[in-house]
């Protein structure tokens, strides 16, 4: 029942402050991004996105796309765009194998994180992700795996929930079909 999982995922992700939208293609994506960013966008190296020819499409649309030198660019970039390995419906989580430093910088330093997820790759629970975690650890001698659920938050002052303390203050999860059906692929 993929539709039910998508609905559950969407609700849970929205409950923790993420935005979830269905995106049909590159054009819709660039339009979505164009409305929300006005500065450099870090496009992280993600196999699931490579087939989309994004740098070219986005540049044509007038977006300022950065594809390397993230350490320097990260400090000034306004957004990061990544793929995702899979999602977890119970908690509205996106999981990113983030061993490549560029992925980590694109998802930590800029204000906004846009993540493209194929809705086929939504699992129901965190327990179902455990075999995949095993697989990552078998494949990668060094591994940095990130579960991301909503934007950065804090309640450290008077317990008042406040968004965007150190990490991104916006998390946009863009569901795009046909992106990838392999949870080992980001």
């Amino acid at each position: 029942m993929p539709n039910q999982l998508v609905a559950q995922f969407t609700l849970a992700a929205e409950n923790v402050g993420a935005e979830v939208h269905a995106i049909a293609d590159q054009q819709e994506l660039t339009a979505y991004l164009g409305k929300r960013i006005d500065g450099p966008l870090l496009l992280a190296p993600c196999p699931s996105l490579e087939r989309l020819d994004l740098p070219q499409v986005m540049e044509q649309a007038g977006l300022n796309v950065v594809i390397d030198n993230f350490r320097e660019q990260g400090a000034v970039a306004v957004a990061g765009l990544t793929g995702a390995n899979f999602g977890i419906a119970a908690t509205g989580t996106v999981v990113l194998e983030s061993t490549a430093e560029a992925v980590r910088i694109a998802t930590t330093l800029p204000e906004k994180h846009f993540v493209l997820l194929d809705p086929q790759k939504i699992l129901e629970t965190a327990d179902q992700a455990v075999p995949l975690l095993h697989k990552f650890h078998q494949q990668l001698p060094q591994a940095y795996l990130a579960y991301i659920s909503g934007p950065s938050r804090t309640a450290d002052i008077e317990r008042v929930l406040t968004i965007g303390v150190h990490g991104p203050s916006e998390l946009h999860i863009l569901l795009m079909e046909g992106l990838s059906d392999d949870p080992m692929e980001r």
Binding site: T93, T99, A126, L145, Y147, A155
Partner: peptide, 26 residues
């Protein structure tokens, strides 16, 4: 699974970070 629920009543925290080994850096 249990920690954020019992600590603050969150289903999950914003980030769970699994790190194994000397990952790439610059």
């Amino acid at each position: 699974n249990v920690l954020p629920k019992n600590a603050t009543g969150q289903l999950i925290t914003s980030y769970i970070t699994w790190i194994r080994g000397a990952v790439p850096c610059a």
